[in-house]
Write a protein that binds this DNA or RNA. Sequence first.
DNA 1: TCAAAAGTGTTGCCGGTACACCCATGG
DNA 2: CCATGGGTGTACCGGCAACACTTTTGA
Lengths: 240, 240
Amino acid sequence: MNNKNNETIDTPTYENGEKMYVATDCIIFGFDDGILKLLVFERRVKPKQGELSLIGSFVSPNENVTEAAQRVLKEITGLENIFMEELKCYSNIDRDEGARCLSIAQYALIRIGEYDKQLVEKHGAQWYEIGKLPKLVYDHDQMVEDALERLRTKSRFYPIGIELLPKQFTIPQLQKLYEVIHQKQLDPRNFRKKVLSLKLLIPLNKKDKTGSKKGAYLYKFDYKKYKKLEEKGFNFSIFK
Amino acid sequence: MNNKNNETIDTPTYENGEKMYVATDCIIFGFDDGILKLLVFERRVKPKQGELSLIGSFVSPNENVTEAAQRVLKEITGLENIFMEELKCYSNIDRDEGARCLSIAQYALIRIGEYDKQLVEKHGAQWYEIGKLPKLVYDHDQMVEDALERLRTKSRFYPIGIELLPKQFTIPQLQKLYEVIHQKQLDPRNFRKKVLSLKLLIPLNKKDKTGSKKGAYLYKFDYKKYKKLEEKGFNFSIFK
DNA sequence: TCAAAAGTGTTGCCGGTACACCCATGG
DNA sequence: CCATGGGTGTACCGGCAACACTTTTGA
């Protein structure tokens, strides 16, 4: 047993490390009338003035990464307590030409009717439809691609899609959301049957008439019941 | 449109950020004769000398986080090209009392027969059975818990469990692995039927006699075929 | 009155689950 | 020869997929 050969591992003293800048970037999804959108931000200052980027910030000494992302999100949209999840750490050495800087990307799902439009405008942020997104700065394109992939895989087994809909929503709306996320047409009869069989939608006996003349019944998601089921290993899967 | 109110967001100049130490820690799983194990490491130096911790390192200026983790893994086990995936970034401000330091945890799945025993011993690392694990330093307990959770959820839909078995394995071995990971007894007849129906195991027409007198047929996993299926949205799920 | 979307029901089939017996072999 | 684990077959049932028609109502 000899300590000298492996000092870099056995002795993680701080002199061995080099400090780095740590940022967080938010991939903010919204769903508006059948269209999946992303909130991006036009840089008003150098470097890369005028180019599009995700919304982000450095992580301050007095906060952890999650708190930093929540702070940014609130500053830009006015929203708190929204669905946000860590995506991945981006750490390539040349990802930011200015200095060694890594970013922990987080993706957020927001109800597009609820954000503060004035705040968003003030920060030069705009919604872009997924698929019509221009080039973003640095590795932000990659982040968006990865976030989309995560949204697809995760929404297959967890009801996170609900976070993109208004708190009261109709079954056709929910179906449309799944179709857009998964790029796949679904049979409305089977979709309805499947969704209702899960017994996780609470009928509100109210109709939403914006989508059709007949109107569609509104539901809300039974979060409490879902939480209980989830603990027992239940999976909210719409697809087989 | 006014630039002055939002400089902290619109102008991510490096003066606004504070640099931090960035580390990576590896949660290394192994599967040995029906038992799921973790490779942990006894610290030989201060601080926290003699206590148990995960294997980790600071991220150097000339490498990204993945490379750092691969470096550590090779230094300790001699292994390269093994399954490793980012788990989560741990960034609480007081997680390391010495300095502001965040860690990007990665979990790795290794074939327990293949690592370099001498190297492991030299670094003071040892295998512990999951569930009989003593307290680890800092937030490493939390990392292990999160990694286990990830292993459970991910192995439900992706064949990552295979990474823990020898390259040639038997169906009873595979079943045992699933049982241990998911803490659940499975019916051997149904398990076999299900696994074979996926057509992803290549029979080797050889028997492994270490487990029984009769011997069990050996198989290997068809990675190429799986890759193709995965691209089409196929899911390797053993459970419903 | 009609176009457009919402809502309802049936059937066949595949796959999951439950369950019992024979096989091979080393000791 | 027998204990131990490995391997095979069947029958039932529930859930998924495919598919056509009626309802509502604003324009």
